[in-house]
Nucleic acid binder design. Structure first.
Lengths: 212, 212
DNA sequence: CCAAATAGGGACAGCCCTATCCCTTTTTTT
DNA sequence: AAAAAAAGGGATAGGGCTGTCCCTATTTGG
């Protein structure tokens, strides 16, 4: 077994922090991920442990979100406390000027929260491996709403959303084939899950989401 | 079966939007939840469907995040497009003055993202039922870091984090009892899960999180 | 010292999710 | 009309998570 991958997420918004932690723990076979809501907790953890990856939202409680000095100070203190780790900055209000500033401090990634999707972590780490830096500025990509229903299993949920985002003009069979390829399962299985999901939705709701 | 509970989450940050949608879909027995990244998508959905609950982050793409007029405009347009729904505003930069403004527009909840935790939705809806309005300003509550490990099942994860947050001075048995009560399971089971989780962590990591 | 607490397991049944293969009927397209 | 596509479902095997009950050492506290 590979040795444990150690990561720390410094982010004050709890749902976002937990989502990021979940992204990391599922991206690695064997990862231990800590979450800190404040700089104090982060620095405490950094003093007691060595991390491979630290994700930082510079807009932490106790600092002025409009002060660029405060934002830089948060990141630089964390980088100084963990010189061997990779540091990724994540922010809701991103711009290229700030990206350059953080890069100057030693960060290897600058990520806007808007448009940062599940599974993006691998791409970001690839960027870092190949080019030393990853930048993902916020951008709007959504054309079809997300959909989520209590009665659906995760697989069904996934397939419903993939189907809703399909390119028009393809036959169902082609789409099943494509979706099956993405998920690594059979075409038949993809078809089955989709039909099952749609049946569940129709039964409980009598109203299908857009694109289905 | 109760009729389907319909909700819409208007939020541009994808991970946050999905987290909120997940919160809603698990809080209700039978819920259909849509997610919109932009005001356009939101208004399109509102035109085609009636919702019971709409959650709005006013800081959407295409609007000036520093302009209070823009923020108010986003919320008022959504409220006008769905007069029968309950409207909850969620924001990263919350303050009481803005809460009052949105309340004036007809919103029934104003929630700061910091400190907004999993499971909070029920409390918020309770507030709304009893007092007509729910306000949760951002505040820092964390004393112990979150912990998350690839090898742990959700139950084990949950128990590890509950144990890490235990109040000092209690015997393990008392804590097992308390945790079991929260989760609705046996004391023995809680004890078992905790021991299993700790063993997994020790085996893969040789380093336990704080508080364990 | 004795009793309680703790560590560290094994066994087992139930359940849901996953994935595959199979089937029939209806609709659409050619 | 024949062929392809699509809807709608049944059966089944495997696996992981859950929850309960049970067991033996070892340590701690009174």
């Amino acid at each position: 077994m590979e040795s444990t991958y150690r990561a720390l997420v410094v982010e004050d918004q709890t749902l976002m922090r937990l989502a990021l932690m979940d992204q990391i723990s599922t991206a690695f076979e064997n990862a231990a991920v800590l979450g800190a809501q404040t700089l104090e907790i982060a620095l405490y953890e950094l003093a007691n442990e060595n991390f491979d990856l630290v994700i930082i939202d510079p807009g932490l409680p106790g600092f002025d979100p409009t002060s660029q000095d405060d934002r830089l100070s948060v990141v630089s203190r964390i980088i100084e406390a963990s010189p061997t780790a990779l540091h990724a900055v994540i922010t809701g209000s991103d711009n290229t000027a700030e990206a350059d500033q953080f890069r100057g401090l030693g960060a290897v990634a600058y990520l806007g929260k808007t448009g940062l999707e599940p599974g993006m972590l691998c791409d970001v780490l690839d960027d870092i491996s190949t080019s030393g830096f990853s930048i993902r500025l916020s951008r709007v990509t959504m054309t079809v709403p997300d959909y989520c229903h209590s009665a659906l299993t995760p697989r069904e949920q996934e397939i419903i959303n993939l189907m809703a985002r399909r390119e028009p003009g393809m036959s169902r069979i082609q789409i099943y084939e494509q979706v099956a390829g993405k998920l690594g399962i059979d075409r038949d299985s993809a078809e089955k899950y989709f039909k099952k999901a749609r049946a569940k939705i129709m039964k409980s709701d009598h109203k299908l989401p857009v694109g289905i």
